[in-house]
């Protein structure tokens, strides 16, 4: 997906999240170290990274809950505290467990609606869209995590905002819920909304995110579309079953590929596409019984990207030991 040269705007304001150079230190921990990215409308932006990468802190800074030491976070061009009726500009779910257990789901949404001057009718609409109608008058304390996620999403939708932000919305959801959530996120983007979704598991975002911001150690490691990330991953390889293993290895190594034996009659080839392997072996008259191309998954691409961030994290500790 090509980058849009111009960010669309709503009412003259950009319907976006713009995070610029956020830095935040908690005691001796540097939680954010120059986090910068833009969330554009009409797509789902995945915000991924290992635990502790600074995703939640960034989201709290966007909502004005935590004040960054440096940098800024703007919603549609404005800092959060300047927003009038903020829930109509951005809806967010940070912590689905943040509920008063004794209050019913509907009443939780009702006070939130009242704070924005919205009526109970709007509450019933978002309850229905989040699939919570049957549980609306039950106390939130008895909700499963999946139901709390749905309640959090209903709360985010109260103000019908053009920008949405969810922190780990897949947590605690059953497979059915995960599929529902993916579809829901896509439908929000299809409305033209800017959607930011964080997750520490890339697999959850498969088939949901269009764009990815990969965070590690408080800053952005990669800011790319999903298609580009997969293409860039070095995980492409070809597996081959053959009775003449040594000949195949010789031919393909000569052609510049890296070949590794993975079994008595199987080989893993990287550096050449499946078509190239078939052509070379055909030219040399070496036989094989089976060939398959293995395309890198989003998960593998992500693991490769974040490996450095995770490993790098361990270094200072080792130095201190020495």
């Amino acid at each position: 997906m090509p980058a849009t040269s111009e960010i669309p705007s709503v009412d003259g304001m950009e319907a976006t999240i713009e995070v610029t150079g956020l830095r935040k230190r908690f005691g001796s921990t540097l939680a954010l170290d120059g986090m910068s990215f833009i969330v554009k409308p009409g797509q789902v932006t995945g915000f991924v990274g290992p635990n502790g990468a600074g995703k939640s802190t960034t989201m709290r800074a966007i909502l004005g809950l935590d004040a960054p030491d440096q940098g800024s976070a703007l919603i549609s061009g404005q800092p959060y505290p300047k927003l009038r009726r903020p829930l109509s500009h951005i809806g967010a779910m940070l912590d689905a467990a943040a509920l008063q257990p004794g209050r019913t789901a509907r009443n939780h949404l009702l006070w939130l609606a009242h704070s924005q001057g919205l009526s109970g009718r709007r509450v019933d609409e978002v309850i229905e869209r989040a699939g919570l109608t049957s549980a609306a008058r039950r106390k939130a304390g008895g909700f499963s995590l999946g139901m709390r996620q749905r309640l959090g999403i209903a709360a985010a939708m109260l103000g019908d905002p053009p920008v949405l932000m969810f922190d780990e919305p897949f947590n605690g959801m059953d497979p059915e819920g995960i599929i529902w959530m993916r579809g829901y996120l896509r439908s929000l983007a299809a409305d033209g909304r800017a959607v930011l979704v964080s997750s520490h598991l890339m697999s959850e975002l498969e088939d949901a995110a269009d764009h990815l911001v990969v965070a590690g150690r408080g800053k952005v490691i990669a800011d790319t579309s999903v298609a580009e990330l997969i293409a860039a991953a070095s995980g492409d390889r070809v597996t081959l079953r053959t009775g003449s293993r040594s000949e195949v290895m010789t031919v393909l190594a000569h052609a510049g590929a890296t070949v590794a034996a993975t079994g008595r009659d199987t080989l893993a080839v990287s550096g050449l596409t499946a078509e190239q392997v078939v052509a070379r072996l055909g030219e040399s008259g070496v036989g094989f019984s089976e060939i398959s191309a293995h395309r890198a998954t989003l998960e593998e691409a992500y693991m490769e990207l974040t490996r450095d961030a995770v490993e790098f994290r361990a270094e200072p500790a080792e130095e201190e030991v020495r």
Partner: peptide
């Protein structure tokens, strides 16, 4: 990309709304 334009809502943002919200919080527990 057609950005999302929320339909015009009748909501207001003032101290009265905050009072209403806190009152709702209080009475629903």
């Amino acid at each position: 990309i057609t950005p999302y334009r929320p339909p015009q809502q009748a909501g207001r943002d003032g101290f009265a709304q905050l009072l209403h919200a806190e009152w709702t919080k209080f009475r629903t527990l």
